[in-house]
Design a protein around this nucleic acid. Structure first.
Lengths: 187, 187
DNA sequence: GTCTATACGATGATAGAC
DNA sequence: GTCTATCATCGTATAGAC
C-alpha cells in the first residue's frame, strides 16, 4: 500500500476508535509506519487528512447499506435486513460517532460527509417505506420520512446502549423492539 | 459556590461540550476560576474530578426522566411525554455522549454511572409498557424490555441525527415516527 | 518523497511556599 | 486551601537537508 493510502487507513481506524479530538498525528504516523515529513507532504495537516479518511468511511458505509437495502425481499424484509445486518456493535458507528466530536461538528467540511451519509440513508429507507405503503404492506397513514428517522435513530442509539452496557444485547433488543412495532399486521 | 463545587460544575459543562478526551484540567480551571493547586487539593486528578461530575450529571438525568415518567396520564401518554420532553437537542445527551469516549469506556468506574443510568431508564420505561399491557392499552404480545430499548435508542440516536444535520428536526422526526408506531390502535 | 531538526503551546501532574 | 514554580511529555506544525 502506498504511503498516502496507509495514512488514510490508519486515520480511519483511529477516528473510529478514538474520535477526531482523541487522534493525534503522532499516533497516525506510528500506525502507518510513516514519518512526519510524509504526512505533511501528502496532506495539509490533521484536518485535511481526517477529511480524506471521513469521506472514505462515509462512502463505504453508504455502499454497505445500499447493498442490503437494495437486496431482495419485501420492503419490510429489506428494512429488517438492514437493521439485523452484522455489525461490530461495540465499536460503534464509524460515521455516527463523529457527530459527538466538537471539532468535527464545528468544521463544516468535516461535518458534510457525515450529514450527507445519514441524510442519504434516511431518504433511502423512506423510499422503501413508500414502496411498502404502495404495496399495502405498510399502513397508508405512515409518514415515510418519520419512520425512516426512527429506524436510523434506533441503530445509532443502539450503539450508545451497547457501549454503555459493554454488550451488544441492548442494541439487538432495540432493533427487535422496533421491528415488532413495524411488522405488517396480518399476511 | 465553593471551589470544589465550581470545579465539578465546570467539568460537567466541559464534558458535555467536548467529552472526556477533549476536556483538559486547564480548561476546567479557567472556567471555574480556580488555580491548579485547588484542583489537586480537592481531587486526585482528572479522572477523579470527572467521576464526581459524571455521577452528578447521571443523577440529574435520572431525576429529570423520573419526573416525566412518573407524571400523570396513561402509559402511552407518559412515554410520549418523555419522548417529547424539552431538550437541548443540538448539545446532545450529557450521559449518552460519554459512551463515545474511549477513555470513559475503558475505565469501569467512569462507565458505571453511564451504564446504570441508561439501564435504569430502560427498566423504568419497560415497567410503564407492562402497565400499558395490563390495562389493555398495549398489545399483550409486546416485549416490554425490547420496546423500552427502542424508545431509549430512538432518543439517543435522535441526538446523532440532529447533530449531524445541525438541526433538531431529525430528532423530532424520529420521535414522531416511533410514537406513530407505538400509538394504541383504536380508542 | 522522506527524513531530521526545531519550535512552542498544551497536557497532566508534583513540590513546596504562603 | 490556594498560589506559583517546575517538569516531562505530547500535539501540531514548519524548515530544510537528502
Amino acid at each position: 500500500m502506498s504511503t498516502p493510502e496507509r495514512l488514510i487507513e490508519s486515520t480511519r481506524e483511529l477516528l473510529w476508535e478514538r474520535g477526531y479530538v482523541g487522534t493525534s498525528p503522532k499516533a497516525i504516523l506510528e500506525r502507518a509506519d510513516a514519518g512526519q515529513g510524509s504526512m505533511y507532504h501528502h496532506f495539509k495537516g490533521k484536518p485535511d487528512l481526517a477529511l480524506a479518511a471521513i469521506r472514505r468511511t462515509a462512502e463505504e458505509m453508504r455502499a454497505t447499506a445500499a447493498g442490503v437495502l437494495d437486496g431482495p425481499g419485501t420492503p419490510y424484509e429489506r428494512i429488517e435486513a438492514y437493521l439485523r445486518r452484522e455489525r461490530d456493535v461495540l465499536r460503534g458507528c464509524p460515521v455516527g460517532r463523529l457527530t459527538m466530536d466538537p471539532d468535527v461538528i464545528a468544521n463544516p467540511e468535516l461535518r458534510a460527509p457525515v450529514d450527507e451519509t445519514l441524510d442519504w440513508l434516511r431518504g433511502r429507507i423512506a423510499g422503501i417505506v413508500e414502496e411498502g405503503k404502495a404495496q399495502g404492506q405498510f399502513a397508508p397513514g405512515m409518514d415515510a420520512r418519520e419512520i425512516a428517522a426512527a429506524v436510523v435513530a434506533t441503530v445509532q442509539g443502539g450503539y450508545v446502549l451497547a457501549r454503555a452496557s459493554g454488550s451488544p444485547a441492548a442494541f439487538d433488543a432495540g432493533v427487535r423492539g422496533l421491528l415488532s412495532l413495524l411488522a405488517p399486521r396480518s399476511a
